[in-house]
């Protein structure tokens, strides 16, 4: 049987959707498209068939830069002991806390 070769499936784009104005954008998947305009259109048809989006961002998948699992320790763990960044670190007199805070 002859092999079926596909010439191209175009480029891969990541899709981020904002479901309400003012909300953050959430990654929801990817689409294939030749260019940014078609990627936007395809993202709209694929990820907002039920009115799920107010705004869509697309970005070429190859342009996404991510930390790697081996970064996990050095990148994120040091912030674990910076407990003074959290409000719970601080004590407020009870009389003030109940009424004024």
């Amino acid at each position: 049987m002859a092999q079926n070769k596909i010439d191209t499936e175009l480029y891969l784009w990541e899709v981020f959707v904002q479901d309400k104005f003012g909300e953050p954008f959430t990654h929801c998947g990817s689409v294939h498209a030749s260019d940014s305009e078609m990627a936007l259109q395809n993202a709209r048809d694929a990820y907002s068939r039920r009115n799920e989006a107010k705004t869509i961002w697309i970005v070429k998948s190859s342009e996404i830069i991510s930390t790697t699992p081996s970064d996990e320790g050095p990148f994120f763990e040091p912030s674990n002991d910076k407990i003074y960044r959290h409000p719970q670190f601080y004590t407020i007199p009870k009389s003030v806390k109940d009424k004024l805070f």
């Binding site: 499936e9 294939h32 498209a33 259109q41 395809n42 048809d45 694929a46 068939r49």
Partner: peptide, 11 residues
Amino acid sequence: PILEEDIALAN
């Protein structure tokens, strides 16, 4: 011609 276009034309 491509899956994305299937969805677009159906739409």
